[in-house]
Design a binder for these strands. Structure first.
Lengths: 340, 340
DNA sequence: CTGAAAGCGCTTACAG
DNA sequence: CTGAAAGCGCTTACAG
């Protein structure tokens, strides 16, 4: 169906080597032959078979990106960033969705390996598992997104959750909120712990004493968040502000606020991580600390491509700043009612 | 770095053919040799090079899916559906995002072609362009999602927008709404015209005369929707219900409703296409006619794989039913206040 | 400048 | 059952 280099060569009455030389440009070819070859290429709509090229050159110019959950809004910009950075250097980014299933993730990694992708970007789940180790040991460069990986000696790109939380608390405090509660998500997660650490730092910076009774929750999930938020909201005196540690508990928080007929920010100030409600039509819009997803994706790709160039490069972890989006849910005169 | 079949053969003291036979299972191999081979395979963590396999077998077991805008919520379930259907038949689905840029789409298609994917799923933009034709002529099976393609003779999977609109209007009418307005999106788009057609059919079914003054708008976009919706809302008497033709004008509609302090569904009933605000925390939740994205993806993949098996198969267009999600924005006693 | 040949890592008839 | 050989579609020294 598709023309091969041999057919092109035959039709142009040259050797296949010459066709290859014309196309690659690596070796000079006389104008006469070059034009004859190009004419035939055009005529046959010849496209070199990259499989064969890759077999020789030992590179596929293809990067795989494994996404834990393609429906999660965090990842769309990340994929964009990675893809844009890949194009700049003539790599094709292929995206795979593991749907939070470890087994699928494993199959995907195996499939990428057997197809000899030049590198892999991991925004996945089971990143500490043996199958990732196998990939690394097979010599395929890997860059991990979102969290650091212990032991595998691979590059990572993460967001500065600690500092993000600190900045957010500073903002809340600057608005005059003294009793600032923390609505926990999954407390066993590194990211959550960083955020909590930054929260405490923020309190300290603001000269507010940490109050154990202003903490609630220890699991992710909208219902979990709802229950924990209810406990905080029903406390007397009610906290002035609540910082939700992840998007799922923030959703629960919002429901709890509404169920009580509380108005935000009038009765309660709210902020959350991960910009949970990208939904523009929601009112009030929620103040959020978001990860720089696009930048994380592009940065990770840049690092990956550098490592492909130079496998002995020093391993690095890049920490990128989060962004604080001040919106109506924490509006106050001190900070401006900044609707972005 | 990665072991080759030759190294395995040498180490197991057999021929490469024998290794291949053991691994493929196509030809019986004595137990003794098989075990020796498998032991070495294990020891070296040998993974066959799919590039070489594909070169021989002329199939890559890889399907490419081109997505117009990976950030658009419509596509996530579609990708999931396609991926699940692909795995079932041992194909790897790779997803590519064209970011609504025709040039990028073109590059992606070229990249997929040169990598000899076995088939392509298209949820793209410039599908009438020459570069798609080139793909088809190169003999790569293509299935198109969302809308039919003229002339190329390829399979398509689309949603029944006409019937979706008709059902929705039937619901609105059953709730007692007589004056049902239509907020147009991009009137040059086939999908929009289908929806409008279904709307008119629905009115007719309900015995309501079509009223030209209950139409507004002719472009997509939140601001465009806002303006057109404002015109409808400021009309006296105000329409009882408004059906928004796409997600962007629906967003504008919502803003216009709020700006006027109108309460929904008390003052006005609202419904929209494409389930625009997946955002669970939005109140009221909006009644919506959604495309069966997951099913569209899986169906398209099934058709594609069938065509790969049998290139001479009869061309088909599959039309799938939309889903009507009745929610608070159109709550009424007649239809139940059905929060799904 | 141009062509013949070897080789990338596999699979698959074909002998033995 | 097993191995030697040809071939998938390319690229790249190496002669000429």
């Amino acid at each position: 169906m598709m023309a091969t280099i041999r057919e092109v060569a035959a039709r142009a009455r040259v050797s296949v080597g010459t066709v290859s030389n014309v196309l690659s440009g690596a070796v000079p070819v006389s104008k006469r032959l070059r034009e004859r070859v190009l004419a035939v290429v055009q005529e046959l709509d010849y496209q070199p078979n990259q499989l064969a090229q890759s077999l020789k050159s030992r590179q596929t110019k293809m990067i795989g990106m494994v996404i834990r959950d393609i429906t999660h809004p965090l990842f769309a910009p990340m994929m964009r960033g990675a893809q844009d950075a890949a194009w700049l250097q003539n790599y094709l980014l292929v995206m795979l969705d593991s749907d939070r299933q470890l087994e699928r993730e494993q199959q995907i990694l195996a499939a990428l390996r057997t197809r000899r992708v030049d590198g892999i970007l991991l925004a996945a789940t089971g990143i500490e598992q043996a199958h990732v180790r196998a990939i690394c040991e097979a010599g395929i460069p890997v860059v991990c997104l979102e969290r650091e990986l212990p032991g595998l000696g691979i590059d990572c790109v993460i967001a500065d959750h600690f500092e993000g939380a600190r900045k957010c608390v500073a903002h809340l405090a600057a608005c005059g909120n003294r009793s600032i509660a923390f609505l926990h998500g999954d407390t066993s997660d590194w990211i959550e712990r960083e955020r909590f650490g930054g929260y405490r730092q923020g309190l300290e910076d603001a000269g507010v004493e940490f109050d154990q009774s202003l903490q609630a929750g220890d699991h992710s999930g909208s219902d979990e968040g709802y229950r924990a938020a209810a406990a905080l909201l029903d406390r007397r005196p009610r906290p002035a502000a609540i910082l939700a540690a992840d998007a799922t508990v923030a959703a629960g928080l919002l429901r709890a606020v509404r169920d009580r007929g509380l108005r935000c920010p009038h009765d309660i100030t709210i902020a959350a991580f991960d910009d949970p409600f990208s939904c523009d039509v929601l009112r009030p819009r929620i103040t959020a600390v978001s990860q720089p997803s696009y930048h994380m994706g592009s940065k990770a790709m840049e690092i990956l491509l550098k490592r492909i160039q130079d496998p002995d490069r020093r391993r690095s972890t890049v920490t990128l700043e989060t962004e604080l989006h001040v919106r109506e849910s924490s509006a106050c005169s001190a900070a401006g009612s900044g609707a972005a």
